[in-house]
């Protein structure tokens, strides 16, 4: 059997969850033995080059590009995992959800106390830029997500155990210390 293929991405996240993936330390060598990485910041492959078994998503969706990337992951991956608070609940970025998006843009580009240079009150509207969504959505409100790994970030051991369980088909151990996140 060929090695399972993994892809990862960070949407509206801080890359903290990816740091936590790296936090599995020397087990990363073991991981390379067990799996093959496809589209991922870990190996810098930008586009899917083959069907993927496990897609790992960090971050929720705050703009149109996030949504497109997430949908492409759903299309190309057999299993999708929401990794961490932002992917599961929207996380910190979702703090803006109670505020109209117009106010957020105004605060960021015109009214905010640290905005000094934008004298002409230019708002980012180039077609090349992703379009901002009205609020930050958790991934499972956009596409079907198969598994959720909570934490901010989820601990390396949780990520490791989940991947090993998925690859070997063994049941996953979830001791309290690994899923507590308060």
């Amino acid at each position: 059997m060929s090695k399972p293929v993994i892809a990862t991405t960070s949407l509206a996240g801080c890359f903290g969850c990816h740091m936590s993936i790296l936090d599995i330390d020397e087990r990363i060598l073991q991981l390379i033995e067990l799996v093959e990485f496809n589209k991922s910041p870990v190996d810098d492959i930008k586009t899917f080059t083959k069907p993927v078994d496990i897609g790992i998503i960090e971050g929720g969706c705050c703009n149109s590009e996030n949504v497109e990337v997430l949908k492409s992951f759903r299309k190309n991956c057999r299993i999708l995992i929401s990794l961490g608070e932002c992917a599961i609940m929207g996380g910190l970025p979702a703090l803006r959800n109670g505020i109209p998006v117009e106010e957020c843009i105004h605060e960021a580009y015109i009214g905010g106390p640290t905005v000094q240079l934008n004298k002409d009150h230019i708002l980012p509207n180039d077609d090349e830029l992703p379009m901002l969504l009205d609020k930050v959505y958790p991934c499972h409100e956009i596409v079907k997500i198969d598994y959720f790994l909570p934490g901010c970030p989820p601990r390396a051991d949780l990520i490791w155990d989940a991947l090993v369980a998925l690859i070997t088909g063994d049941p996953m151990k979830l001791p309290y210390e690994v899923i507590k996140f308060d």
Partner: peptide
């Protein structure tokens, strides 16, 4: 989820 509806307000505000 409706992408069109969800980008409407921000696009209108920035003029695109």
């Amino acid at each position: 989820f409706d992408m069109k509806a969800s980008v409407e307000s921000s696009c209108k505000y920035v003029g695109r």
